[in-house]
Design a protein around this nucleic acid. Structure first.
Length: 299
DNA sequence: TGACAGGGGGTGT
DNA sequence: ACACCCCCTGTC
């Protein structure tokens, strides 16, 4: 019944460090992106805009294949999405791992983990869905948005809807995608973007503080969501999203008991420096893994 | 196997 | 502080 997908051959990706299965899972399904699915053979299928890609580990080397029509530019585009050769190594080396034993432990535990370079507009849409939701639920919402409102890219795979499409969709149709109170935010944001052509593109080009300030003007976007969009959708490594996990981590590992989110963000930028957002992702991955191990041991 | 709380990676008032 | 909206998860 399901039509076959015409894939390019599996190809190794250059300029990326070795990965472990754990770090690949954290990279693709650890709260940065919400459109990656692990397959029975351990490979991952996912995508962004009109790219549908599969990733797998050949030993510790990351390999990809894409739709045949995309094969020519594939390596560059996929490598760029995975932030290959984007200065991650230098940023990692500049983190205070020499004096911070916990950070060092996190960096060692997730080799290859990095910040993805996702499309800005799609990242905004995904994180508007994220409020008080866990990854599985966010994935379900964006899957429904793609399925019902996005254009087909390949058999069984739709891209996420464009903002100009969302602007024309009745709010009731958004609510039907299990968005709950987030439907209102997405609807209103889509209206705003439709009335302000080029606003999103301009925002992406602004320096970090100005870009964050502008994003916070959108309904449903506060400091945390703005930081996530700038970190995961614009490569702004100085963005340091403070969510409940990071609040817990920073309290426990760095002694910041009772600190307010804004203070924690300030501490994070001061302590971790230019790669604060990158550091945050490693801390986050560690905390998730710890929670998972604890849960599995308990049950 | 099925019903039933409880809580969830946030924002806006 | 609390509502928003409702699905997921763990538990009985």
């Amino acid at each position: 019944m399901s039509a076959r997908i015409d894939w390019s051959p599996w190809t190794p990706l250059p300029d990326l460090p070795p990965f472990s299965a754990d770090s690949l899972r954290e990279l693709l399904d650890g709260g940065q992106a919400f459109r990656w699915y692990v397959q029975p053979d351990g490979s991952w299928r996912g995508g962004w805009v009109d790219w549908l890609v599969e990733l797998r580990l050949g030993g510790t080397t990351l390999e990809y294949r894409a739709l045949r029509g995309h094969a020519t530019s594939g390596v560059k585009v996929v490598a760029s999405y995975l932030a290959a050769g984007s200065g991650t190594d230098a940023l990692l080396d500049a983190l205070p791992w020499r004096s911070d034993a916990h950070l060092r432990q996190c960096l060692q535990a997730f080799p290859g983990l990095r910040i993805l370079r996702q499309p800005f507009g799609e990242t905004l849409l995904c994180f508007l869905c994220s409020a008080t939701k866990q990854i599985v639920q966010i994935k379900q919402m964006v899957a429904l948005l793609a399925e019902r409102l996005g254009e087909s890219v390949a058999p069984g795979w739709n891209r996420l809807p464009r903002w100009e499409t969302l602007a024309r969709v009745p709010i009731t149709q958004l609510q039907a995608c299990l968005l709950g109170f987030r439907a209102r935010y997405i609807h209103a944001t889509a209206q705003f973007l439709a009335e302000h052509p080029g606003w999103l593109e301009e925002t992406e080009r602004l320096p970090y503080p100005a870009a964050k300030e502008r994003l916070c003007l959108l309904p449903g976007v506060g400091e945390k969501v703005a930081d996530c969009v700038l970190l995961f959708g614009a490569g702004r490594m100085e963005a340091f999203p403070v969510d409940v996990w990071i609040i817990k981590t920073m309290a426990r590992r760095y002694g910041l008991e009772g600190w307010r989110p804004a203070q924690i963000a300030q501490f994070g930028r001061a302590h971790f420096g230019a790669g604060a957002g990158l550091a945050q992702q490693f801390l986050f991955a560690w905390e998730r893994k710890t929670a998972r191990v604890k849960r599995e041991a308990g049950s």
